[in-house]
Design a protein around this nucleic acid. Structure first.
Lengths: 191, 191
DNA sequence: GATAAAAATTGATGTATGGTAAGAAATTAT
DNA sequence: ATAATTTCTTACCATACATCAATTTTTATC
């Protein structure tokens, strides 16, 4: 477990006490393919750090269609930040796509760490800044690239994700239907 | 100026020293419609806090088309966070849409505040968290709403923005052409 | 390994949005 | 106020992607 937390720490210095605190409020868990970690409509207070495997967060719209917001792979954090921030029921479902080991945090307790160990702040700030940059880039990609270009880029960003995702997971992340993605893949193979 | 910074402070407590530091590294500026604050391709090290008026950040794609990432209105921060984070030339242009008063920060100096005044951390964290939530919501809207629905939502979020934006500013934010937006508006008026 | 279930592909067709171009309207400059 | 410029609207046609349905392929289960 110690070494697992090291990954959370990244390159930041963190006191042993703060590290102990992280242990005390977290729980290492294993999930299998198909398991739901957070369900849309339920109350949310969990934040996950992925040690290995693959999770997916998605929203189900009024027509019952799924829209993937994020894939959670190794060393990524994943949760329903909208639900947590608004203090409302989850608007996302988080599902396990392949056998995964994660560290589960209680959101409130994790948020408490800043009052107890302010030294944790720079780490969190760095994390949030990177998150914002990633999201900005994603929005720009969505605005200016074609579906085929977005798919190419996606494969570069998640090189072996196709090993454990279904076509429609990726399609719903790219904002197209699975049929369209299928056609894009056919075209791509012709090239 | 004191009261201006109060807005930045929001509801957070901030020591007088930290406040003084913020003064010392910032500069209050006025821009007129059409002025470019940051130009795509140039180096970026500025971050703006909008006191009043309206700014817009956008990217120009390989076909010369503009794609609006963000509108910067009262009390919003705006910059090219991608360029700053990657330490690369700006990928965004920031333009002034109507006479605006802003506080201009040097990104590096602003970043320094955390070593000098760690008490500023919670404020920044809160800001970043809200930013992430906003972006998550925007991505979900883009994925699951029609252009007309996104336009309706946009008008609710920015009630009087049409007073100082052009049609194509909004269209490029919604991910459609100005012609399509025009048609959507016509349909909307029929309802 | 056989069977069932789920997912991917493919074809035919529909729809939303894009592209181009022209004219109308609104805004800005003189 | 008038002229010049920019923006908005509209029409027509093009295209990317969606929808629906049938078929093939892959994956899971017994």
């Amino acid at each position: 477990m110690k070494e697992l937390i090291k990954k959370i720490k990244s390159n930041q210095d963190l006191s042993t006490e703060a590290e102990e605190y992280l242990y005390s409020i977290s729980e290492k868990k294993t999930f299998s393919r198909g398991e739901i970690l957070i369900g849309q409509g339920q109350s949310v207070n969990k934040i996950y750090f992925v040690l290995n495997g693959c999770l997916r967060s998605y929203s189900i719209d009024k027509n019952g269609k799924e829209h993937t917001l994020q894939f959670g792979i190794k060393d990524w954090w994943i949760s329903d930040y909208i639900g947590i921030h608004n203090n409302e029921p989850a608007i996302l479902t988080i599902e396990c796509l392949k056998e995964s080991i994660v560290i589960e945090f209680n959101a409130n307790k994790l948020n408490n760490i800043f009052t107890v160990f302010p030294e944790y702040e720079p780490f969190q700030r760095n994390l949030l800044e990177r998150h914002v940059v990633t999201l900005h880039q994603r929005i720009l990609n969505q605005l200016q690239l074609t579906a085929a270009e977005r798919y190419d880029l996606f494969l570069k960003q998640y090189p072996d994700i196709e090993l454990y995702t279904r076509n429609y997971h990726i399609a719903s992340y790219l904002g197209i239907t699975q049929e369209s993605l299928s056609r894009i893949r056919v075209e791509k193979n012709k090239r």
